[in-house]
């Protein structure tokens, strides 16, 4: 970009969500991304059938965080056999809420002129980490103390970048904000905050082990069922 090393938010590579075998020739691959404060489903539709496909539409089932398409699916021209088209579907989080198992499961229905197809995907929780998720230091300390110990979950992250600055920068690009940093007995401790789209705060302590690619992540949250999904997201961000 010419502006130096500007880190972007982590986006997983696309994977196949609907195989052509199950989609009567329609193959859909996709991933989720957060860009400029908005969530997108980035999709590739491929026609592996022998007939033209048209009249595409998409719908989500109710889900844990109210994810819903913010606009109709824009595939405006018919898709010829062996043709692919990329589409970026903007999402919002004001849809109907229903707790899913796993929490980040999303059931999707796609229709075209041939049939309606259903598939399930899981989304990485960091697409729900909002840009104003940096908690005030005083609030962080009070909240950390206030959340009971039984709501603390501990995880091990392997393949963590070796120095606290790169860890902090990488995470901040995906809206995991470092509130404070301390070094105790040679260990770097990062205190971090995350806010989800539904207003849930997650407090983190990331302890980097000197000379080791492994680090310890402790998460405190009033809704502890989100912790393991936040861990998976943080681990994916740090590995990539």
């Amino acid at each position: 970009t010419g502006t130096g090393a500007v880190l972007g938010a982590y986006v997983a590579p696309k994977s196949v969500w609907l195989h052509a075998m199950k989609g009567k020739g329609l193959e859909i691959s996709g991933t989720f991304a957060r860009r400029s404060g908005a969530v997108f489903m980035d999709l590739v539709f491929t026609n592996r059938a022998l007939q033209v496909m048209s009249d595409f539409a998409i719908q989500f089932n109710r889900n844990s965080f109210g994810l819903a398409p913010a606009a109709p699916l824009q595939i405006l021209t018919p898709l010829a056999p062996n043709q692919s088209t990329e589409v970026s579907l903007p999402l919002n989080t004001v849809g109907s809420v229903m707790k899913m198992d796993p929490l980040n499961n999303l059931q999707v229905a796609v229709k075209n002129n041939i049939d309606v197809f259903y598939f399930s995907v899981v989304y990485p929780l960091h697409i729900l980490f909002v840009e104003d998720g940096k908690m005030e230091r005083q609030m962080f300390l009070a909240t950390w103390k206030d959340i009971p110990n039984e709501n603390e979950a501990q995880f091990q992250i392997r393949e963590c970048p070796p120095n606290p600055d790169s860890v902090s920068n990488k995470l901040q690009a995906s809206n995991v904000f470092t509130v404070a940093r301390r070094t105790v007995d040679g260990q770097d401790m990062l205190y971090q905050s995350i806010k989800l789209t539904n207003g849930i705060w997650v407090l983190a302590e990331l302890r980097l082990q000197p000379g080791s690619p492994s680090s310890a992540l402790s998460l405190k949250c009033r809704a502890p069922e989100v912790s393991s999904f936040v861990f998976q997201a943080v681990e994916a961000i740090l590995k990539n």
């Binding site: 230091r137 404070a180 260990q187 302890r207």
Partner: peptide, 20 residues
């Protein structure tokens, strides 16, 4: 001097977590 005591509070938190 804007020391609000928070720097010290974070140091105590980190200490307590490393050497409980």
């Amino acid at each position: 001097e804007l020391d609000d005591g928070l720097d010290e509070a974070f140091s105590r938190l980190a200490e307590s977590r490393t050497n409980p």
